[in-house]
Design a protein around this nucleic acid. Structure first.
Length: 467
DNA sequence: TGAAATGTTGGGGCG
DNA sequence: ACGCCCCAACATTTC
């Protein structure tokens, strides 16, 4: 231990879902007043048990990238495994660190975990997961907002100023020689999402350099890259939400009137993210049941075979199946697709939305309890500010509207590659001679529809009305 | 961040 | 020139 460290004990910088060196307020707070930080990640069996292979690989890749970045600064990532409170206690003893700094996480599990650590150890939580702390936004009567529009108005009225920070200076990190660290796990990150801060920044720059100005329309197109595809990076904090917002506000400055609407639409999506974090913070029970008390008695169908058909993209509705196969293969699904697929499970199949929530959490690289739960509750019509129960997506119309050339469907359902455009979203209508011409026998090469939308629409309306 | 049914309007063909 | 009808396009209502 050198002289400097003797006089000024280091601190632990505990990374959880803020895997970045730039624009990180937890790191900034940790190294204030000349303290040096020891970067630590703890593999928590309680989290890693959750079966989500692609997301886990993305996380592992992120740890590796972070370790590489730290090594360029003469430091490294210390990796431990086990109960966080126990591991941190060990680390404090080993290093003589005076405190632990971490970015605050608002999920129920994270809050229980952090409360346990706070009770035993000097843990300082720093806000940064969302633009504003969920507790900073409440109505005049002190109750949390449960409707998006008033929430967003209040959100926009709060002062936002944020100084972006570049790559940190090497001397911010304490020596880690002699500290034990597990070997970084092998990684096979999802092909479409190379992990790491640098990639996140590239994507942000690319998106804000072009697509964001078409976002109002482009975001709905399944067949075009109109979205930012930043969700996995925001999920693990490889990109800070405030850096994203700052960059968006800059794009707003250089946009003309028409483009401005598009940038604002994207910023609105960032507000939805804050909104759902806030809902989960104030109403942790939403992970167990629907927010609307009046809709908790819906008679969902117990239909494991149908659930599997949906999961594997074999419903016979091309746009639904394409979405589900994209999810299984890439770990990502277009937001429009998420609504279409979710509506199909909850409304057409009348299967409990929580089954879908669970499946998405297993598959999604960006899988995150607050946003995933919020999205599912919205679609099922059981959440805060939810879609009215009678708002039922028609997969055929959604397909025609948002994949007008059928390119998205053909991409993910190669068996339909030669189906003429007229039938691409309703192949079951193809006359037998057309089926043989394009080499698809419905019911053999591609499934016949699992349900008749027109019929099950009445079924779901009745099920919701009866509660 | 629906869909479908119903209502309204207005242009153009035609007697 | 005029009224009538058709019907697309758009608006409104309802679930």
């Amino acid at each position: 231990m050198n002289q400097n460290e003797k006089n000024n004990p280091p601190v632990i910088w505990w990374l959880r879902r803020d895997l970045r060196l730039t624009d990180n307020d937890a790191l900034r707070a940790a190294v204030r007043d000349g303290r040096q930080a020891i970067p630590v990640f703890i593999m928590d069996p309680a989290l890693l048990q959750a079966k989500a292979p692609l997301r886990q690989q993305f996380l592992f890749g992120g740890l590796r990238r972070l370790d590489e970045d730290l090594r360029l600064l003469g430091s490294r990532l210390i990796l431990r495994q086990g109960n966080p409170a126990e591991q941190l206690a060990h680390l404090l003893a080993e290093t003589g660190a005076s405190a632990i700094y971490a970015e605050e996480d608002y999920s129920p599990y994270a809050r229980r975990r952090d409360a346990e650590v706070v009770a035993r150890l000097p843990l300082r939580l720093v806000q940064g997961l969302t633009v504003f702390h969920p507790a900073a936004l409440t109505k005049a009567d002190n109750h949390p907002y449960v409707v998006f529009t008033p929430f967003s108005k209040a959100w926009k009225s709060l002062p936002f100023s944020f100084t972006t920070t570049g790559s940190p200076h090497p001397n911010l990190f304490a020596a880690t020689t002699g500290l034990e660290s597990l070997p970084l796990p092998e990684m096979r990150p999802p092909a479409d999402f190379p992990p790491g801060e640098a990639e996140a920044r590239r994507r942000l720059d690319r998106f804000l350099g072009g697509a964001v100005f078409e976002y109002a329309e482009g975001r709905n197109r399944l067949d075009q890259p109109g979205t930012s595809e930043l969700s996995p990076y925001l999920r693990f904090g490889m990109l800070s939400i405030r850096a994203a917002l700052t960059a968006a506000l800059q794009a707003l400055q250089r946009a003309d009137a028409d483009d401005r609407r598009s940038v604002e639409t994207w910023i609105n999506e960032l507000i939805w993210r804050d909104f759902y974090h806030s809902i989960l913070y104030h109403f942790p029970g939403v992970l167990k049941e629907g927010f609307q008390t009046g809709l908790r008695g819906i008679a969902w169908r117990e239909a494991p075979a149908d659930l599997q058909v949906w999961q594997h993209g074999e419903t016979g509705y091309p746009v639904v199946d394409a979405c589900m196969r994209q999810l299984a293969e890439t770990g990502w699904m277009h937001n429009r697709g998420r609504m279409i697929a979710a509506s199909f499970l909850a409304k057409d199949l009348l299967i409990n939305w929580q089954e879908g929530e669970r499946w998405f959490m297993r598959c999604l690289v960006d899988g995150e309890p607050a946003a995933n739960n919020g999205g599912w509750q919205w679609t099922a019509g059981v959440g805060t500010d939810a879609a009215p129960y009678f708002r039922i997506f028609n997969p055929l119309l959604q397909g025609k509207k948002f994949d007008p050339e059928g390119r998205f469907v053909r991409r993910w359902l190669p068996e339909l590659a030669h189906v003429p455009l007229t039938y691409i979203h309703n192949p079951w209508m193809m006359p037998p001679d057309v089926q043989s011409e394009c080499g698809v026998k419905i019911g053999t090469d591609y499934p016949a529809p699992i349900v008749d939308h027109a019929i099950v629409k009445e079924r779901v309306l009745n099920a919701y009305k009866k509660t």
